[in-house]
Design a protein around this nucleic acid. Structure first.
Length: 423
RNA sequence: GGAGAGUUGUCCGAGUGGUUGAAGGAGCACGCCUGGAAAGUGUGUAUACCUCUCAAGGGUAUCGAGGGUUCGAAUCCCUCACUCUCCGCCA
């Protein structure tokens, strides 16, 4: 959530930045300012009236103590009439505050200066590419044929048990998941990230805190009996570790990593995008999250990008890094780098990680602050990234490394997987 | 799931309707004391919002969350969340 004071003081800049995100409801900015004006006015009026009531009440107490009952009764009557003004003011204040928040949460985060203009994924900037695309043998196939051939994943069984997009991993397929999760977590903790194993369901406050609510209401599975949401990413529970906290400045940066299954309804997806492992309702992911000093968030973003890049390099996969354009960025992000790996069997790039700086957009909602050297409260900045999401990594590993009768795994996985080949 | 007890500031803890934003203690910060330290001692030690160019000062709100009663609520009532104890159930 953007800060109202910032909007008030930088109206032009806010409008200009929102345009980069192709955000059309610019009238919201002025509505927010107007509502904030109204809020201030109502609050001042309420405070004044309430101050009168408070001092009168004290006076009544005094009079009662000195036995001056009649004067006390007279004052009571006075206060009673004041109350007829205050009650509506109180209601008005609650109302205007709610209307202000309701508008404010509709405003997306402002994109950083280096965000390219653009509307579609085609407008994303390729920052750099790495690795080499493999030359596949004659008869190379996409991963959904390989998973069947090697009995790694049973998509139909998942459909029977739950529905489409809920694959069942079997045998070496299941072990490969476990190996990857373990490897990713080890890689992250070696870089100083503290491992968490969070709840896989969150309450409304947490979903709101990281910005999934109200923006992505329909994209999360909702356990209505208890009003819990199945997490779409470990970002939600783990970032909420620091909801409603005041940190010491020297506690920053905070680095966390977590494995979790991710549940996404993916309403509206279809076709080749959802074939095989390309898009699932349930998948495994390891996430990295940092909470940092505001002055450090962009250098931290670069460090996280480098971290994910090293991880991909260790998997020997061809990849590219994209700087997302305004139109392709998420609601909550100020700057996002997407990582894609080239999946040779399908001949397409697949997104495997998204690393973003949210600046104070999340921490404002979370009320995650720290006291700076001068004793002033400031919002920390939050960042996160996938490190990594499993399904498309598996797709690329299988497709790119198919050779003869088997699949050759990259070196770093041999110990974790307990074998060099999937045969 | 049932019954009961609880939830107060950084922490412990007092407080059952009226100068209580909150006693007392601990911790922490700064000062005095000391050659230095400890002990001792003094002062300070919440957040948000409004007023304000800033600061200072003032005001309002906040004692798990929300609502109610009252001139006045940490204190009384209701709803909810959480913690603990006992019973039930159970991997």
């Amino acid at each position: 959530m953007l800060q109202v004071n910032y909007i008030r003081q930088n109206r032009e800049a806010v409008l200009e930045r929102l345009a980069v995100k192709n955000f059309s409801q610019t009238e919201l900015v002025d509505e927010v300012i107007a509502l904030d004006d109204e809020r201030k006015r109502v609050q001042a009026e309420f405070d004044n009236n309430q101050a009168s009531v408070n001092s009168a009440s004290k006076e009544i107490g005094n009079l009662m103590r000195h036995g001056q009952k009649e004067q006390a009764e007279a004052l009571k009557a006075e206060v009673a009439s004041l109350k007829t003004t205050i009650d509506p003011l109180k209601a008005q204040m609650a109302d205007v505050e709610k209307r202000l928040t309701d508008k404010l949460i509709l405003l997306p985060n402002l994109p950083a200066a280096q965000v390219p203009k653009g509307k579609t994924p085609e407008d994303n900037e390729v920052v750099r590419e790495g690795g080499t695309k493999p030359t596949l043998e004659e008869g190379a196939v996409p991963h959904w044929e390989l998973t069947t051939k090697h009995k790694l994943i049973d998509f139909e069984l998942g459909t029977k048990i739950t529905g489409s997009g809920f694959p069942v991993y079997t045998g070496k397929g299941a072990k490969l998941q476990r190996a990857l999760v373990q490897y990713f977590l080890d890689f992250n903790t070696a870089a100083g990230y503290l491992e968490y194993l969070p709840p896989f369901m969150v309450n409304e406050e947490s979903a709101y805190g990281t910005g999934q609510l109200p923006d992505k209401e329909g994209q999360m599975y909702h356990a209505t009996a208890d009003n819990f949401y199945l997490i779409p990413t470990a970002e939600v529970p783990v970032t909420n570790v620091y909801r409603d906290t005041v940190l010491k400045e020297d506690a920053l940066p905070i680095k966390m990593t977590a494995y979790s299954p991710c549940f996404r309804r993916e309403a509206g997806s279809y076709g080749k995008d959802v074939r095989g492992l390309n898009r699932l309702h349930q998948f495994e992911k390891v996430e990295i999250i940092q909470i940092v000093h505001p002055d450090k968030s962009y250098e931290t973003l670069d460090a996280m990008v480098a971290h994910v890049e090293q991880l991909l390099q260790s998997l020997e996969l061809p990849y590219r890094i994209l700087r997302l354009c305004g139109g392709d960025m998420s609601f909550t992000s100020a700057l996002t780098y997407d990582f894609e790996v080239y999946s040779a069997g399908q001949g397409r790039w697949l997104e495997v990680s998204s690393v973003s700086n949210f600046e104070s957009f999340q921490t404002n909602r979370l009320k995650c602050r720290f006291k700076d050297a001068t004793g002033k409260m400031q919002f920390a900045h939050s960042l996160n990234g996938s490190s990594l999401a499993l399904p498309r990594i598996v797709a690329a590993l299988l497709e790119n490394n198919q050779a003869g009768e088997g699949i050759m795994l990259p070196k770093v996985l041999h110990t974790y997987f307990g074998a060099e080949w999937i045969m």
